[in-house]
């Protein structure tokens, strides 16, 4: 079987996979990183969103072998170095942006990509960005609130750092 090597959450990893092994399967079954979820098989739900080379992608619609040499980041790599919740994660808890938690990793990873590109999104921009993430529990109300709040916090931190 072919071998694949990549960096996941800052750690070099490798493993044998089939051609048909998806990135999400490699993460979940190969590496035991079960925070990335599979909620559909038609690439709509976004429960599997991770970052590959800094961009959010659906890990169920990328082959593991296609990520040879890539930098991959998953929900397991989003906490602060001391283990406390990162800004977006903390905002989701603060604003009740999750209920069953299944779509949450994808939501957080998608939100992180948005806030990297757009530090001050409008509520409409947040809602439109989430086109690829389906949540069945929250009605999105508090997810949007959490992302807006996280954006404000991140802007504040940048200001403070200057």
């Amino acid at each position: 079987m072919p071998k694949v090597s990549m960096t996941v959450n800052g750690k070099a990893v490798s493993g044998e996979v089939e051609g048909r092994t998806l990135l999400v399967q490699f993460l979940r079954e190969g590496l035991g990183l079960t925070g990335t979820h599979v909620g559909c098989d038609t690439s709509q739900c976004g429960a599997c969103v991770v970052h590959v080379n800094g961009e959010s992608v659906k890990a169920c619609t990328v082959f593991a072998l296609g990520c040879e040499g890539a930098e991959v980041r998953t929900i397991e790599g989003m906490a602060n170095p001391d283990g406390s919740l990162g800004v977006i994660q903390a905002a989701f808890q603060e604003h009740h942006g999750l209920q069953c938690g299944f779509c949450t990793p994808g939501m957080v990873m998608s939100a992180a990509d948005l806030l990297k590109q757009n530090a001050s999104p409008s509520e409409r921009e947040v809602r439109e960005w989430l086109e690829g993430n389906i949540c069945r529990c929250t009605g999105y109300h508090n997810i949007v609130k959490a992302i807006m709040a996280a954006a404000a916090t991140l802007r504040g931190e940048q200001v403070a750092a200057e």
């Binding site: 690439s43 976004g46 992608v57 659906k58 619609t61 948005l114 086109e131 690829g132 993430n133």
Partner: peptide
């Protein structure tokens, strides 16, 4: 087209 993740690939 599609959604942000689709557009990234």
């Amino acid at each position: 087209i599609g959604d942000p993740q689709v557009r990234n690939r």
